[in-house]
């Protein structure tokens, strides 16, 4: 499968990764090669095979509806570059 430069740019933008024109060119080839490799899996007939979601037979673990966490605002914002009154401050985003 051939990935063109426009697709590389689109994927990079969605992932918020800055890509230079040289890098984009290189990624065209790399991504195409990865997809070709993944495409090999399509050769296996999986028509009647359920998707594997677990290695062992186990159910989704559930939690009781109780408040057990919270009130750690200081710790929550501790790594943030900028805070005020326990709010995170981010560059202004306006619709």
């Amino acid at each position: 499968m051939k990935v063109d430069e426009a697709t590389v740019r689109h994927v990079a933008r969605l992932a918020r990764i800055k890509v230079t024109p040289e890098q984009a060119k290189a990624l065209e080839g790399e991504l195409s090669a990865i997809l070709d490799w993944v495409e090999q899996l399509g050769e296996v007939d999986t028509a009647n095979v359920e998707p594997m979601t677990r290695v062992e037979e186990m159910a989704l673990p559930k939690r009781e509806d109780k408040v057990t966490e919270g009130s750690i605002a200081g710790q929550i914002v501790k790594n943030a570059p900028l805070t005020e009154d326990n709010f995170f401050l981010v560059p202004k985003v306006v619709e």
Partner: peptide, 10 residues
């Protein structure tokens, strides 16, 4: 709240 920043509460 601020001219340059948005305040985020989770």
């Amino acid at each position: 709240q601020h001219p340059d920043y948005s305040f985020v509460d989770l």
